[in-house]
């Protein structure tokens, strides 16, 4: 059992489990699934700076902070209790394409050539962490949600604006992958 759980979980196990988060949060307290809002609550709690966007009772939304705190803890437990015995399997074509972008570490979930403290001050390190992170925070708020709030929660509730957002997420990701990365990671 533990051995099976330690191996990478297939999509048809993970997807439905993630989908079940939607009714679970609704049943627990009529909460709409969404993660990027947590970033807004952190701003509202720590540095609202008189901006109207952060003037609301963030304490009413504390459940969301408990939720993301749980995700952090879940990350710890997953590697601690169920470490993957095998190296990550990556599609050969993608490996080849990434090697052309000077990515050479294929051992873990993230490549160390891009994500490590020793590379954080290099151009490539700054682009993927600082610039990438800023775009994630700015973009999700402007779009009014992220993959969880729009793609999963919004589509589950048949909201067409969420479909527009989801398509935009994908188009943005495709543009960055095919046209941005070859230029930025040169």
């Amino acid at each position: 059992m533990i051995e099976w759980l330690s191996r990478p979980w297939p999509w048809y196990v993970a997807g439905p489990l993630i989908g079940l988060t939607v009714p679970t949060l609704l049943l627990l307290g009529n909460k709409a699934f969404g993660i990027s809002s947590s970033l807004r609550h952190i701003c509202a709690a720590c540095f609202p700076a008189g901006l109207s966007f952060f003037q609301y009772d963030w304490k009413r939304e504390r459940w969301n902070l408990f939720f993301v705190g749980g995700i952090f803890l879940g990350g710890i437990l997953a590697v601690l209790l169920l470490p993957n015995p095998d190296p990550l399997v990556i599609a050969p074509q993608t490996k080849e394409d990434l090697a052309a972008l000077h990515v050479s570490d294929f051992r873990g979930l993230l490549p160390e050539d891009l994500f490590s403290w020793s590379n954080i001050l290099t151009w490539r390190g700054l682009v993927v962490t600082v610039v990438g992170g800023f775009l994630v925070g700015f973009g999700t708020r402007w779009a009014g949600g992220c993959t969880s709030g729009h793609a999963i929660m919004g589509l589950s509730n048949l909201q067409w604006p969420s479909l527009v957002a989801t398509v935009s997420f994908m188009v943005g990701g495709l543009l960055m992958t095919w046209f941005g990365l070859p230029f930025l990671l040169k």
Binding site: G139, A143, H150, F169, M170, G172, G180
Partner: peptide, 11 residues
Amino acid sequence: GGLLFGFGWAL
């Protein structure tokens, strides 16, 4: 915003 988030997602 969706496009910007997409850029960040890929990065």
